[in-house]
Design a binder for these strands. Sequence first.
DNA 1: GCGTTAGGTTTACAGTGTTAACCTAACAGC
DNA 2: GCTGTTAGGTTAACACTGTAAACCTAACGC
Lengths: 240, 240
Amino acid sequence: MPGPDLLDPVSDDTPPPTSTRSVPEPGAPGTETAILEAARDLLAEGGIGALSMRAVGSRVGLSATALYHYFDNKEALVDRVVQHGFQRSEDYLRRAVENLPRGSMERVAALGEAYIQFALRNRQYFKIIFAIRPEQPRAIRGIPGQGGYVVLRESVVEAMESGAIRQADPDVVVLFLWSVVHGLVTIFMACDPAEMLDEVGLWGGDCGQPEATLALFEKFRELIRDGLAPDRLAELEDAI
Amino acid sequence: MPGPDLLDPVSDDTPPPTSTRSVPEPGAPGTETAILEAARDLLAEGGIGALSMRAVGSRVGLSATALYHYFDNKEALVDRVVQHGFQRSEDYLRRAVENLPRGSMERVAALGEAYIQFALRNRQYFKIIFAIRPEQPRAIRGIPGQGGYVVLRESVVEAMESGAIRQADPDVVVLFLWSVVHGLVTIFMACDPAEMLDEVGLWGGDCGQPEATLALFEKFRELIRDGLAPDRLAELEDAI
DNA sequence: GCGTTAGGTTTACAGTGTTAACCTAACAGC
DNA sequence: GCTGTTAGGTTAACACTGTAAACCTAACGC
């Protein structure tokens, strides 16, 4: 848990101590966004459990039922918060690679690392985005930019064109890479990583969870690049 | 959503219509397991939202507060259900590969496929196992067998020994493979796969989500085996 | 002036997990 | 045999939750 990160333009889990907002006059134009911001802050501060209609209302200076004039129900409000989280993650990824050469494998890898970092630094956002919904899964379409999908896809296509990664269906590759980093992060959010990593030998005493997760991802990069098949290329070169 | 699957020894989401269990006499020896079974059934039938203390109590013929004589709180009860889910998933994986040759890549791949199938067929179990917890992540240690981890690890080690997959830290490889399938499944549980897969071209009209997810995994297998790096081996052979 | 509407309020309902107080039958010790 | 003690129950109650219903009020169009 390092101090304030200068490289991190968007950091949510410990937001600045937001003074209790309030919408003074009835029908003020910014009421809806004030509600959304209050919900956002409550989420970041206390997690999903802290996001209740009454809490949001009281923080914004309204009764809980007044919120129903702006949102159909709690789910609709949460959906908007999630939508914001998607946008935020997309921004995060975009900034993480803006100075990296297009078409490089390095850029693709940096996106993976940024995804992990976003998830670990904005845990509450990440959790609510991928929270288990009671019924239907959340629809992605309609979300502006569809999160980091397009960002990653762009970099993958460029890397294919430049020959940095092999020719394949870009969407399959994107989903593959997304699965790897998403799976890594969600596994470690569900199960105590210390317990797993001291077996792996990566949990060297006093290194925190973010470091360990990133270190593991570093090891994954090799596998992603070269695959699991035996290294026949090295064999062939040795034979020559 | 195919009919009853003969190959599927454990299927949870649509359990047989369980008659309302009850623990007749006070202090009956099976009360605790009756509670756990009731909780299990409620979870499978109606998801996490259906699992309330009062519902469990009434199904088992007790008041909600009586459950507190067997479990400290709801979380403790859920933990036991989760523990059972872990065991169940381990059994599922074990059976899925019991007839497959040890040391083969095929066996490792079958474990991935089985993981996906378990998740899709036992959605409620899978969801509650990896549900976002408010505070600390769930500890894995103490769970007998630690889920499928040891099963997969065993197969990976054997595949390394037989030369089917390259030499590497087995725990890193296991976490990598686990991440891939776990990420794939959780992404598709959170986001509507139809929306993503019609872009990918895998969502061909009337094929269901399980089929599409497995089809995508099939495509992943290639990447897992050969990696993303350009196929220099083919180049080399072509050059010769 | 009057109806309509947006944006509020308070009240209330049906849930939730959980605690406190109480009851009851079984068992151990003297 | 009487007396704790304890395990396993009960009901009532508390503090929450999302949300619906009824009501109020100021602004606006006609």
